[in-house]
Nucleic acid binder design. Structure first.
Length: 574
RNA sequence: CGGGACGUGGCGCAGUUUGGUAGCGCGCAGCGUUCGGGACGCUGAGGUCGUGGGUUCAAAUCCCGCCGUCCCGACCA
């Protein structure tokens, strides 16, 4: 491609209001343009990157036996009602009506449709199957953010494994795990696989791939001394034992004006250190009030609450002060679960067996002391609810846990049989007995992956694409396109690189050298061959690697062969 | 949804406090000089000031409604 004929609208100035570097660089470099909140146009450069990422994904999916298909994105709502996800997905699911008034939805993943297709299988002999597609998904995100990192419309590679038994599911899951490791490595990412919450997807086990990045929105912990790693939505940690002393009698005591854990602890350090208090929160879960109990110094991890109650994705919210007063008769700051019997009480396991605790008395300015959790509180459900914090101890080996932030670039789920049962996907085994097909589902967001690569690989001058996903592998920067000799040499090189199979861009624009250098660095082309009158006279081409801007010289006679070989070697990405 | 900010040529912004004929930089077009790290001169094109209403002799500017976008909090590939 000749740059002078290409649509590569680079900008000198970035959008001022976005946080993410990847967004600024992709906009400035002419890769993407925003249409609306969470809707992006892929310009030619962006589309080339997107297609290369898609091709890596396709190769690796095919390598594990995946068969590519394509399903509609516009679905009858009935299908989603049948799986239960019409309600479960809440507001995140785009819902619309056609001219006849029929309810439709736009797919956010497609377990339902793949489940329906799977009902065309009848025998164990037809299993296992790995089916996938790369197609648009819609999510009505409450807050699209950070450019391509969180959008409302994006391309997902979603795949599904179909097996007759649990060992089969495990094999399909492991194949995907391996494929994902290879995909992210080939893209130039260092995504870490962590235990995760399955959320609204359902199922038993799931693993997220997270790329460390300040621009990310996911938090995970890793143990510094063993292989434990988990998303905070799921992560657990070991707690140091606390000496509560001997159990004593439950007793009310006045606490005028003490409305926070901290204030109470400071006023009564002997009995109410934060880890001796019970923190009481009220949540509306699926429309029903629930009292949530945690140790005073612990924070609630909301996903854990959702997981433990099976509530829809957006089904939990903190209760309003008025709702709390009506329910418990006091304002936040004096709440407690002692004597509460007609409301569900979900308590964190860290409170199990604790005695001599302090908690609110459900009357403003009064607390209880001497609380014996087992004796004084009617706990409906025990669950792991607290959020792990940085530096706590690993449950596996006691090592220190590090809490870090990253971008979720992939997520794999062991689903089970909920969709196959809902859509009648059963197969018979050797003995003629019917079994629901066991499904797994696996997703990668292509555009998010693209942004993650930029987050992971850029410098002050712009993007530094790995060869494997670069929109062009090499750019020929012509210093004096008006000089016939120079342009002739550049044209010859261009043809030779093209014939050698290199994705080459010829910068023949009538621009000054500085502009061309800066632009090629901004858009991140891995290799640059500079062709100018000086070099043409001496027979030497100047080579600049984008990464580190390392320069070297090569004779024009050797440059194509040498660089084509080097690019070929880097193209696979590992 | 709660909190904050913004909306003015393609991009980045000033102008709004104190109403009076819409400006700057970049970019773009033409000509000329330049040309190995974001050149310069001259000439020129390009704007319903997000939108609807109101106040006023007069509204980018004041008032009200709506829409949109971004950022901070609760959610996902």
């Amino acid at each position: 491609m000749r740059w002078s004929e290409a649509f590569i609208p680079t900008l000198r100035e970035a959008p001022a209001d976005s946080e993410a570097v990847s967004h600024k660089l992709l906009v400035r470099g002419g890769f993407i343009r925003q249409l609306a909140a969470g809707s992006y146009t892929m310009l030619p450069l962006g589309q080339r990157v997107r297609l290369k990422i898609g091709e890596i994904v396709r190769e690796e999916m095919n390598a594990i036996g995946g068969q590519e298909l394509m399903l509609p994105t516009l679905h009858p709502a009935e299908i989603w009602r049948k799986s239960g996800r019409y309600e479960l997905m809440g507001e995140n699911l785009f819902k619309l009506h056609d001219r006849k008034g029929a309810d439709l939805v736009l797919g956010m993943t497609e377990e339902e449709i793949f489940g329906m297709l799977a009902s065309e299988l009848f025998s164990y002999k037809q299993l296992p199957q790995i089916w996938y597609q790369m197609h648009v998904k819609f999510r009505d995100e409450p807050r699209p953010k950070s450019g391509l990192l969180r959008v409302r419309e994006f391309t997902m590679k979603d795949s599904y494994t179909l097996d007759i038994d649990a060992p089969g599911l495990d094999r399909g899951f492991d194949k995907h795990h391996d494929a994902y490791v290879r995909i992210f490595a080939r893209m130039g990412l260092e995504a870490i696989d962590v235990e995760a919450s399955s959320g609204a997807m359902g199922g038993s086990e799931s693993i997220e791939f997270i790329q460390r990045s300040e621009a990310g929105e996911d938090w995970a912990v890793t143990c510094e001394t063993c292989d434990y790693r988990a998303n905070v939505e799921r992560a657990v940690s070991a707690l140091d034992p606390i000496d509560d002393g001997e159990p004593t009698e439950l007793e009310r005591f006045p606490t005028p004006g003490l409305r926070t854990i901290k204030a109470l602890a400071e006023a009564h350090p002997d009995i109410a250190a934060p880890d001796r208090q019970i923190k009481s929160l009220v949540y509306m879960v699926d429309g029903e009030p629930i009292v949530v109990l945690l140790r005073g110094d612990h924070d609630l991890q909301e996903q854990k609450l959702l997981d433990s109650t099976g509530a829809p994705e957006d089904g939990a919210r903190p209760a309003q002060p008025e709702e709390i007063r009506e329910l418990l008769g006091a304002d936040p700051g004096s709440l407690g679960a002692v004597g509460v019997s007609d409301v569900k009480v979900v308590a964190d396991r860290a409170l199990q067996g604790r005695v001599n605790m302090t908690t609110g008395a459900n009357e403003d300015d009064w607390h209880y002391k001497g609380v014996d959790v087992a004796r004084d509180i009617d706990v409906t459900t025990w669950a792991d609810l607290r959020q792990v914090t940085d530096g706590e101890s690993c449950v596996k080996d006691g090592g220190s846990l590090e809490l870090w932030k990253g971008i979720e670039v992939g997520h794999i789920f062991k689903l089970g049989t909920q969709y196959s049962e809902a859509f009648g996907a059963f197969v018979q085994d050797e003995g003629g007995t019917s079994h629901p097909i066991i499904m797994g589902s696996y997703g990668i967001g292509l555009e998010r992956g693209m942004a993650a690569v930029v987050e992971a690989s850029h410098d002050d001058g712009g993007i530094v694409w790995p060869v494997s996903v670069a929109p062009y592998e090499l750019v020929i920067t012509v210093i004096r396109p008006d000089d016939q000799n120079t342009m002739a040499t550049a044209n010859r090189l261009y043809d030779d690189f093209d014939s050698a199979g290199v994705d080459v861009l010829l910068d023949d624009r009538e621009e000054r050298p500085g502009v061309k250098f800066a632009d090629s660095e901004l858009i991140g082309i891995p290799y640059r061959v500079t062709v100018g009158p000086k070099g043409v006279d001496s027979g030497m081409a100047e080579i600049t690697e984008r990464k580190g801007l390392v320069r070297s010289e090569l004779a024009f006679d050797d440059v194509v062969e040498t660089l084509a070989e080097r690019i070929e070697g880097a193209r696979f990405g590992i």
